[in-house]
Amino acid sequence: KDKDLLKGLDQEQANEVIAVLQMHNIEANKIDSGKLGYSITVAEPDFTAAVYWIK
């Protein structure tokens, strides 16, 4: 199951987060929520590491 990592990002921010996570071998998903911006989700086992790397 995926957990929400970040919400309300613009496309550039979302792409930067995806890139950082991929560099650390964390699979992440970018979801277009329309006017609400983009959300990033990661698998539950990767959540703690993902939070660490996006600081």
Results as ranks from 00 to 15, higher is better:
residue 47 F to Q: 01
residue 10 D to T: 15
residue 46 D to Q: 06
residue 13 Q to M: 09
residue 26 I to K: 01
residue 46 D to Y: 10
residue 37 G to N: 04
residue 33 S to M: 15
residue 35 K to L: 12
residue 27 E to R: 14
residue 24 H to S: 04
residue 11 Q to P: 09
residue 54 I to M: 07
residue 47 F to P: 00
residue 39 S to I: 14
residue 41 T to K: 07
residue 4 D to T: 15
residue 29 N to E: 07
residue 28 A to Y: 10
residue 17 V to N: 01
residue 42 V to C: 04
residue 51 V to F: 08
residue 37 G to R: 05
residue 15 N to Y: 07
residue 37 G to F: 05
residue 48 T to C: 14
residue 34 G to M: 04
residue 10 D to Y: 05
residue 8 G to V: 03
residue 12 E to K: 12
residue 55 K to L: 14
residue 53 W to N: 01
residue 15 N to D: 13
residue 54 I to Q: 02
residue 14 A to T: 03
residue 11 Q to K: 11
residue 4 D to Q: 15
residue 36 L to G: 13
residue 40 I to E: 00
residue 31 I to M: 05
residue 40 I to M: 01
residue 46 D to K: 04
residue 42 V to N: 00
residue 24 H to W: 05
residue 41 T to P: 00
residue 4 D to W: 15
residue 38 Y to L: 06
residue 45 P to F: 14
residue 36 L to H: 11
residue 51 V to C: 13
residue 52 Y to K: 08
residue 14 A to E: 03
residue 19 A to I: 08
residue 2 D to A: 12
residue 19 A to P: 01
residue 43 A to D: 05
residue 47 F to W: 12
residue 49 A to H: 08
residue 34 G to K: 04
residue 33 S to F: 15
residue 21 L to I: 03
residue 53 W to M: 03
residue 11 Q to M: 12
residue 30 K to C: 12
residue 3 K to R: 12
residue 8 G to H: 09
residue 43 A to L: 06
residue 18 I to F: 07
residue 34 G to P: 04
residue 4 D to G: 08
residue 48 T to S: 12
residue 10 D to P: 05
residue 21 L to S: 00
residue 45 P to M: 14
residue 55 K to I: 14
residue 9 L to G: 02
residue 11 Q to S: 12
residue 23 M to H: 08
residue 17 V to S: 02
residue 52 Y to T: 05
residue 30 K to P: 03
residue 28 A to E: 00
residue 31 I to N: 07
residue 25 N to W: 05
residue 3 K to P: 05
residue 26 I to N: 00
residue 18 I to R: 02
residue 3 K to W: 09
residue 22 Q to G: 05
residue 18 I to A: 03
residue 31 I to D: 02
residue 14 A to H: 03
residue 54 I to S: 03
residue 27 E to L: 13
residue 38 Y to C: 06
residue 41 T to E: 04
residue 49 A to Y: 05
residue 28 A to P: 02
residue 25 N to I: 04
residue 31 I to E: 04
residue 22 Q to D: 04
residue 31 I to T: 06
residue 34 G to N: 04
residue 20 V to G: 02
residue 44 E to V: 09
residue 37 G to Q: 06
residue 54 I to T: 05
residue 37 G to D: 03
residue 10 D to R: 10
residue 7 K to G: 09
residue 20 V to P: 00
residue 53 W to A: 10
residue 35 K to D: 12
residue 38 Y to R: 00
residue 12 E to W: 12
residue 53 W to Y: 08
residue 43 A to G: 06
residue 51 V to I: 12
residue 37 G to H: 05
residue 45 P to A: 15
residue 16 E to M: 14
residue 46 D to V: 05
residue 15 N to T: 06
residue 4 D to Y: 15
residue 52 Y to S: 06
residue 17 V to R: 01
residue 32 D to N: 10
residue 44 E to T: 10
residue 9 L to Y: 03
residue 15 N to V: 06
residue 28 A to W: 07
residue 9 L to T: 01
residue 17 V to W: 13
residue 22 Q to N: 10
residue 11 Q to I: 13
residue 32 D to E: 08
residue 26 I to M: 02
residue 53 W to G: 00
residue 38 Y to D: 00
residue 23 M to S: 12
residue 6 L to Y: 07
residue 29 N to I: 12
residue 34 G to F: 04
residue 16 E to Q: 13
residue 10 D to C: 11
residue 44 E to M: 07
residue 32 D to P: 08
residue 13 Q to C: 13
residue 39 S to T: 15
residue 34 G to T: 04
residue 5 L to K: 01
residue 31 I to W: 09
residue 49 A to M: 12
residue 51 V to N: 09
residue 1 K to L: 10
residue 41 T to I: 10
residue 49 A to P: 03
residue 6 L to W: 05
residue 2 D to I: 13
residue 1 K to G: 11
residue 16 E to N: 12
residue 55 K to Q: 14
residue 35 K to A: 13
residue 49 A to C: 15
residue 45 P to I: 14
residue 1 K to Y: 09
residue 1 K to S: 09
residue 51 V to A: 07
residue 35 K to Y: 12
residue 46 D to S: 06
residue 40 I to P: 00
residue 4 D to V: 15
residue 13 Q to E: 10
residue 39 S to Q: 06
residue 45 P to R: 15
residue 19 A to G: 07
residue 37 G to L: 08
residue 47 F to V: 04
residue 24 H to L: 04
residue 35 K to E: 12
residue 22 Q to T: 06
residue 11 Q to L: 15
residue 39 S to R: 13
residue 19 A to T: 07
residue 35 K to S: 11
residue 3 K to Q: 06
residue 50 A to N: 01
residue 34 G to W: 04
residue 48 T to N: 13
residue 35 K to H: 13
residue 45 P to G: 14
residue 1 K to H: 10
residue 42 V to Q: 02
residue 30 K to S: 09
residue 34 G to V: 04
residue 18 I to C: 07
residue 13 Q to P: 03
residue 13 Q to W: 08
residue 8 G to D: 05
residue 49 A to W: 09
residue 34 G to D: 04
residue 51 V to L: 14
residue 46 D to N: 08
residue 30 K to T: 06
residue 41 T to L: 09
residue 5 L to M: 03
residue 14 A to M: 04
residue 53 W to K: 01
residue 18 I to M: 10
residue 38 Y to G: 00
residue 22 Q to F: 10
residue 37 G to P: 02
residue 45 P to Q: 15
residue 9 L to I: 07
residue 12 E to Q: 12
residue 40 I to L: 03
residue 42 V to Y: 02
residue 38 Y to E: 01
residue 54 I to Y: 05
residue 4 D to C: 15
residue 23 M to F: 09
residue 22 Q to P: 00
residue 2 D to G: 11
residue 11 Q to N: 14
residue 49 A to E: 11
residue 2 D to N: 11
residue 53 W to E: 01
residue 3 K to A: 08
residue 44 E to A: 12
residue 51 V to D: 07
residue 46 D to H: 06
residue 20 V to D: 03
residue 13 Q to L: 07
residue 42 V to G: 01
residue 23 M to R: 12
residue 6 L to P: 02
residue 26 I to Y: 03
residue 19 A to C: 11
residue 30 K to W: 08
residue 24 H to D: 00
residue 5 L to G: 02
residue 54 I to A: 05
residue 30 K to R: 08
residue 51 V to E: 12
residue 49 A to T: 09
residue 7 K to A: 11
residue 13 Q to D: 05
residue 10 D to K: 09
residue 51 V to T: 07
residue 17 V to M: 08
residue 7 K to E: 09
residue 6 L to H: 02
residue 39 S to D: 09
residue 17 V to Q: 01
residue 39 S to L: 11
residue 33 S to E: 15
residue 39 S to P: 00
residue 25 N to K: 06
residue 21 L to D: 00
residue 18 I to W: 07
residue 55 K to D: 12
residue 12 E to V: 09
residue 37 G to V: 07
residue 32 D to W: 14
residue 12 E to S: 10
residue 48 T to H: 12
residue 19 A to V: 06
residue 46 D to T: 03
residue 20 V to K: 09
residue 15 N to Q: 08
residue 50 A to Q: 00
residue 38 Y to T: 01
residue 12 E to M: 10
residue 5 L to D: 02
residue 26 I to Q: 00
residue 24 H to M: 06
residue 25 N to Y: 06
residue 3 K to H: 06
residue 32 D to F: 13
residue 24 H to R: 04
residue 24 H to C: 07
residue 11 Q to E: 15
residue 55 K to C: 15
residue 37 G to S: 06
residue 7 K to D: 08
residue 22 Q to H: 10
residue 32 D to K: 09
residue 39 S to F: 09
residue 39 S to A: 08
residue 45 P to H: 15
residue 18 I to D: 00
residue 25 N to L: 07
residue 8 G to F: 09
residue 44 E to S: 08
residue 53 W to P: 03
residue 6 L to R: 02
residue 10 D to L: 07
residue 38 Y to K: 00
residue 1 K to Q: 10
residue 28 A to V: 05
residue 29 N to T: 13
residue 29 N to R: 13
residue 36 L to P: 05
residue 51 V to H: 08
residue 6 L to E: 03
residue 16 E to K: 13
residue 21 L to C: 03
residue 2 D to C: 13
residue 31 I to A: 04
residue 49 A to D: 11
residue 49 A to L: 10
residue 31 I to Q: 05
residue 1 K to M: 11
residue 54 I to G: 00
residue 26 I to T: 02
residue 35 K to W: 10
residue 28 A to R: 01
residue 14 A to D: 01
residue 15 N to A: 09
residue 4 D to S: 13
residue 24 H to T: 02
residue 6 L to K: 02
residue 50 A to H: 03
residue 18 I to Q: 04
residue 4 D to A: 14
residue 19 A to K: 14
residue 24 H to Y: 09
residue 6 L to Q: 02
residue 50 A to T: 02
residue 14 A to G: 01
residue 15 N to W: 07
residue 44 E to K: 06
residue 30 K to D: 01
residue 19 A to L: 11
residue 48 T to V: 12
residue 20 V to Y: 15
residue 22 Q to K: 14
residue 9 L to H: 01
residue 5 L to S: 02
residue 55 K to F: 15
residue 12 E to T: 10
residue 47 F to K: 01
residue 43 A to W: 06
residue 23 M to V: 07
residue 29 N to A: 08
residue 36 L to Y: 13
residue 45 P to Y: 14
residue 20 V to Q: 06
residue 42 V to T: 01
